[in-house]
Design a protein around this nucleic acid. Sequence first.
DNA 1: TAATTAACGCGACTATGTTGCAATAGCAAA
DNA 2: TTTGCTATTGCAACATAGTCGCGTTAATTA
Lengths: 130, 130
Amino acid sequence: MSRRNTKSQQEVLDILKQSGLALNHEMIQEQMSLNTDRATIYRILNRFSQDGIVHKVVGDDGKQYFAFCSNCTKDGHQHNHFHFRCIECQNVICIKNELRVQLPEGYEPINFNGVISGYCSKCCKQRNGV
Amino acid sequence: MSRRNTKSQQEVLDILKQSGLALNHEMIQEQMSLNTDRATIYRILNRFSQDGIVHKVVGDDGKQYFAFCSNCTKDGHQHNHFHFRCIECQNVICIKNELRVQLPEGYEPINFNGVISGYCSKCCKQRNGV
DNA sequence: TAATTAACGCGACTATGTTGCAATAGCAAA
DNA sequence: TTTGCTATTGCAACATAGTCGCGTTAATTA
């Protein structure tokens, strides 16, 4: 089952790369010039996620966000970092610091999902009337 | 708008306290002896969450989990800890270690949501055929 | 150029969570 | 105890996210 290169796939990847943010399906669809179906976008994103091309993060709003893996090599994927979700502008950014959480004896971690939500600096300032 | 004490509310709280886990709506409803409506359970849980009686955590499965605040005082709520979700037995436990994540300058955090999923020690053993 | 099949579009479906509204039932005051 | 106020509930409808089956399209390779 080898992968094929399609226009929709290319555009989704371009959008993710260029934004530098973690985007959800809706944000991506808004930025698409192609009229790609919702289901297809989900399939593309999940494929990317499986292939280790993007991170998948579930926000505290329950939505799935996808971000291009900029710091990952093909050997090691570093997903143990937090994301910050601004509840005003909706941007989800990556907080680079890798961190390790001590699990109880015998627990086997598979997926790390850390999200902090609040106001990003830009929206903080705007709220304070600057 | 003062709160009233109802049987459904009592039972939900009892279930949360007694289980010691973070439970989602479905898990709670299964354990209820009363025939309480789904919407009501959600309303109860959100009320508890607003009142600081329970933590609300969104899992990497996108579902809302609620856990009784055992370590919180009325002054300080400590929600900056991870939860572990076992993808086998579905249990969500609280990992006590409080931790602090360094945010970029000017960012204002409001909600912390950290979930690690994988296999808990019990399910690890079972999978290894012990 | 033709064959193979990955990827797509469409529609239907599931599940989670929320909301409006009329009915019910805590709680406090009489 | 009774009465009145209104928080809470049940029901139904709704919104949204995400998935899946299936027939069609188009990327790749021979």
